[in-house]
């Protein structure tokens, strides 16, 4: 008996320790990024967030600013990458969220059960396709298609709208937005579908008995009841899009020192720029280039973490409140 008590205690502490490694991981991630990013935060200050010029000045001479080594003439502004991240993710949501909600409504409300199962499997499979494969497909198929078929059409016919008039590029904002949209649709669709299915049958039956059409049931019963979870799923998708690296890096156009003025212009995102630049950063003897990249990483971490916490609260709240409704009805 005493033996087994000891074994129980041992298992309990080992298990707690294993679960607790998550704290060590997060501490190490935050700690190293803060330590390595600190010189850039001090030296570059607020202009890191407001300037579009990113010039490591690798031929400059070593100088010391505020106690940290840097190169003379070096200037780090991250606005191009921050803007690119936010704008491409916003475009992904504008394209992806309505499509995903359409898919979810089809799967949960309109489709016959057998078809719904097949499509659900395909949607979940899409979520499992590696992001670099999406990027490569974008480079091989989507970018030429946009360049030769879609963008000339948009540019000629929608010239009166802002952002749609101007030169077309092979890869840029539109391509990035579409690839990101394709990547986040499965996430939004899967969670929204589950939330819609949780809406109690009695509510639907009541509405149908009053003579509402299928769509009216969706509009007035299903969507209002699932709206919190749907909003949460869109935010989860946004969090994924903001941090996505490999899908964007091949189709973004790798812009530097310039903001996009049209929907076709090359952009760059924080994640994509981070993936491309670390090799050249190590040629800077002062270490300021590395530090500036790590500061970008911190900004990205801040944005995605905030988005995700909000998203999880909304999804949880949405699912809790809809299961409470079952009890109340």
């Amino acid at each position: 008996m005493r033996q087994s008590k000891k074994a129980d205690a041992l298992l309990r502490y080992t298990a707690a320790l294993c679960g607790g490694t998550s704290l060590i991981f997060i501490f190490l991630i935050l700690g190293t990024t803060l330590v390595y990013g600190f010189p850039s935060i001090v030296v570059n200050g607020l202009k890191f967030l407001t300037s579009i010029t990113w010039n490591p000045a690798l031929s400059g001479s070593l100088i010391t600013v505020h106690g940290f080594k840097t190169l003379s003439g070096a200037h780090y502004g991250g606005l191009v990458f921050i803007t690119g991240t936010l704008v491409s993710s916003a475009l992904a949501i504008i394209i992806g969220a309505p499509t995903a909600i359409g898919v979810a409504i089809f799967l949960s409300e309109f489709s016959p059960k057998s078809l719904s199962t097949i499509i659900s499997v395909l949607v979940e499979l899409t979520a499992g396709v590696p992001s670099i494969i999406f990027g490569y497909w974008g480079l091989l198929v989507l970018v030429p298609f946009l360049l030769y078929k879609i963008e000339p059409l948009l540019s000629q016919n929608l010239w009166f709208l802002p952002f749609f008039h101007g030169q077309v590029y092979s890869s840029g904002l539109l391509a990035s937005g579409i690839i990101l949209a394709l990547m986040i649709i499965p996430i939004i669709a899967a969670i929204s579908r589950d939330a819609m299915r949780q809406v109690p049958l009695e509510l639907r039956e009541g509405a149908k008995a009053l003579g509402l059409t299928h769509w009216e049931v969706v509009k007035s019963i299903v969507l209002p009841n699932a709206k919190m979870a749907i909003a949460g799923s869109i935010l989860l998708g946004l969090g994924r899009a903001l941090g996505e690296t490999m899908a964007v890096v091949l189709v973004s156009g790798s812009a530097i020192n310039t903001l996009p003025h049209t929907a076709y212009a090359p952009i760059n995102t924080i994640a994509a720029f981070m993936a491309q630049s670390m090799d050249s950063a190590f040629t800077d003897p002062s270490g300021m280039y590395v530090s500036a990249l790590v500061e970008l990483a911190l900004i990205l971490l801040l944005i995605t973490t905030a988005t995700n916490i909000l998203a999880r609260l909304l999804v949880r709240e949405g699912f809790i409140s809809s299961s409470e409704k079952v009890v109340r009805v």
Binding site: F25, I29, T245, A271, M274, A275, L300
Partner: peptide
């Protein structure tokens, strides 16, 4: 939070 850390970070 850990699950949401971007892969490049």
């Amino acid at each position: 939070i850990l699950a949401a850390v971007p892969s490049i970070v």
